[in-house]
């Protein structure tokens, strides 16, 4: 289904700000699997998601989604296969346009956009019906500019929009990180609901280990541009937050060890 092969990405190469964001990342994700990607800040988890979504071209490597080699596809073309929700609740919708207009845009994701009216009464009914499933009362506010809604409401709508046409792959980039705890829980719940109901293949970057443990079928841990842990099936079923914390600490200690060893070696031999 999703195949990532030997992906490399370095930002600002050759400068003092050089960041090796992805180093030889390979990953295979089966259809219907909900994968959580966790890791420290700057570990490359969002970069991996953006590479799959097509925000930039990798330096090296290949990305296959189903039978398509999408490595060189521009972002907008990949959108025909991929639905996305961003960390920033304002990034996924056009603020000045109404709820129904925003959803009408999502109803033709990756399809031709003809010169026929975007909002007809039939389309409007269809929108109201599905917005009702969010249980946020937004079906009565379809003609309000989406910018008047709260971050949580907008994120829930973005989620609905990303899954309106069943995507081959749903990418969630810390989509609850900018919300207050209560709203985050609600959006998490909607996420689970939509993914289970539509049997979606999804990847979710998250900072919340709780969320990773509760929602996903598989957990990938990244550190310094590499995948350092891959928990699936029984391993995932047994894993607890404390286990993940331990792994984190181990990985970080290893880092410290590397650095201190290098320093000692330097002092002794240089």
């Amino acid at each position: 289904m999703l195949n990532v092969n030997n992906l490399y990405k370095t930002f600002a190469p050759g400068t003092v700000n050089e960041v090796k964001a992805l180093i030889d990342v390979s990953l295979h994700i089966e259809e219907g699997c909900f994968t959580a990607v966790i890791g420290t800040n700057g570990s490359g988890k969002s970069t991996l998601l953006n590479a799959i979504a097509g925000s930039f071209k990798p330096d090296h490597g290949r990305i296959n989604l189903f039978e398509h080699n999408i490595t060189n596809w521009p972002e907008y073309k990949r959108a025909s296969l991929i639905g996305r929700v961003f960390q920033n609740p304002f990034a996924g919708t056009a603020a000045g346009m109404t709820i129904s207009e925003n959803i009408a845009l999502a109803m033709r994701r990756g399809k031709r956009r003809p010169l026929t009216a975007a909002i007809t009464s039939r389309i409007r009914d269809e929108i109201a019906e599905r917005v009702k499933t969010l249980k946020m009362g937004l079906e009565d506010r379809l003609d309000n500019p989406i910018g008047t809604l709260s971050g949580g409401q907008r994120q829930a709508l973005t989620l609905l929009m990303a899954s309106w046409l069943r995507p081959q792959l749903l990418l969630l980039d810390e989509h609850t990180a900018a919300l207050d705890p209560k709203t985050a829980a609600k959006v998490s719940e909607i996420t689970k609901e939509i993914i289970t109901r539509e049997k979606l293949t999804a990847m979710m970057v998250t900072h919340s280990m709780q969320q990773a443990v509760d929602l996903s079928d598989r957990i990938i841990m990244m550190h310094r541009g590499r995948i350092v842990e891959d928990l699936r099936d029984e391993m995932k079923a047994r894993v607890r937050i404390s286990d993940l914390m331990q792994t984190f600490e181990r990985v970080q200690k290893l880092d410290l060890f590397d650095q201190s060893v290098a320093e000692i070696l330097e002092q002794q031999f240089v």
Binding site: S80, R84, G92, T93, P114, A117, A118, I119
Partner: peptide, 23 residues
């Protein structure tokens, strides 16, 4: 107010979102 026109209006408002919708 057509599908194409709606896409056009969204382009200035949020280009990132527009790309994510396949435009």
């Amino acid at each position: 107010l057509t599908h194409l026109g709606t896409a056009l209006r969204a382009t200035g408002s949020n280009p990132q979102m527009v790309r994510a919708q396949g435009i």
